[in-house]
Computed example of a mutant assay.
Amino acid sequence: MHPGQHPIDDDLVRRLVAGQFPQWAGLMVKRLPSAGTVNAMYRLGDGMLVRLPLVKGGAGDISMEQEWLPRLAPRLPTAIPEVLGAGEPAEGYPWPWSVYRWLAGENPEVGALGEPVPLAEDLAGFVAAMWSVTLPGAPAAHRGGPLASLDASTRAAIEELRGIPEEAIDCDAVTLVWEDALRAPAWDAPPVWLHADLMPGNLLVDGGRLTSVIDFGCMGVGDPACDLFPAWNLLPAAAREVFREALGVDDATWNRGRGRTLSQALIALPYYRRTNPAMAHNARHVIRAVLGER
């Protein structure tokens, strides 16, 4: 998916685990299929998961999770990853990596949600709890800055999509939505704690209800609009309104949230359309959902 991606296979993971966590040597190691874009994941035995960055840019995410996840976990209503082992570079692998406790569940599927309204309520509960965290010394969230900071990359993606007619994106329409979001008043209150990457692939459900939220590599503090992604990347229209009402989001924040979600989709689609079908599919869904509100 990316230039500079490090090759990772079962044998490398076995050697890393055996060298640094001999108590787990000999356990089953099996690649876990994933639409994730930054990390490779492997089952380790029945109860653990190994997560290794594919690119240098993901190394900081692993270290940040090791520091902050234990402090966030008791403050959240939903299970999050628990770090069981902090791995170090070895065996030719250049970056830190982690062993986590296995979290059961499945990713929710857009268009196939059995109980979208209860799921929307669960998601709102998680987001509200994140926003209420008061841990000091937080990093800046990966996507937590001003919306205008995304303007150049978003417009470049729109122009790239104009040159891909088979995607059939109404580039004039998405430009109008983007420019409307840019006109929304900026967040002028103190920054809040965010997950900042609430994609369907980072959510686990059981029986349609949210059981876990994973992949906190983008977490930190910033504009609360960053955690409104599920409104357009997962929830149907009626559940979207339940999500908004439960969070009490004002018009400006909702508009910025729509713009952020659209920006991410517009940038992801041309980048992943040939390398990550799940990401490209969700990007197309977001664009349709956002334009459907016009």
Rank of each mutant, 00 (worst) to 15 (best):
65 E>D: 11
211 T>Y: 03
40 A>T: 04
265 A>Y: 09
100 Y>C: 13
267 I>M: 14
225 A>Q: 09
148 A>C: 06
177 V>R: 15
115 E>F: 05
207 G>V: 10
6 H>F: 15
219 M>A: 13
174 V>M: 03
63 S>V: 11
235 L>I: 12
11 D>W: 11
135 L>D: 00
288 R>H: 11
140 A>D: 05
274 R>K: 08
226 C>D: 06
193 W>M: 15
24 W>H: 15
43 R>N: 01
15 R>V: 13
258 R>P: 02
12 L>N: 12
119 L>M: 00
213 V>R: 02
185 P>C: 01
193 W>C: 11
101 R>D: 07
237 A>S: 10
126 F>P: 00
143 R>N: 14
255 N>F: 00
82 E>Q: 14
70 P>M: 04
35 A>H: 04
275 T>I: 06
54 L>N: 08
143 R>L: 10
212 S>H: 15
32 L>F: 11
292 G>T: 12
281 H>D: 12
94 P>S: 05
203 L>F: 04
262 L>D: 02
271 Y>L: 09
82 E>W: 07
20 Q>G: 13
269 L>T: 04
16 L>M: 15
143 R>V: 03
93 Y>V: 09
78 T>I: 15
137 G>D: 13
143 R>E: 09
255 N>R: 15
173 A>C: 01
294 R>W: 08
30 K>G: 03
268 A>Y: 09
104 A>T: 13
98 S>M: 05
119 L>F: 01
169 I>A: 05
209 R>D: 00
104 A>Y: 05
15 R>S: 09
262 L>F: 12
36 G>S: 08
50 V>N: 04
39 N>W: 01
46 D>G: 15
218 C>K: 04
231 A>T: 04
274 R>W: 01
15 R>W: 02
72 L>Y: 10
219 M>I: 09
210 L>C: 01
96 P>I: 03
291 L>G: 10
219 M>K: 06
187 W>K: 08
11 D>I: 10
98 S>K: 05
237 A>V: 15
6 H>P: 01
21 F>W: 12
226 C>G: 12
15 R>L: 13
89 P>V: 04
154 T>Q: 00
150 L>C: 03
76 L>S: 02
213 V>N: 05
55 V>N: 10
22 P>L: 11
35 A>W: 03
26 G>Y: 05
217 G>L: 12
279 M>W: 01
19 G>T: 14
65 E>P: 10
194 L>W: 12
228 L>I: 12
87 G>N: 08
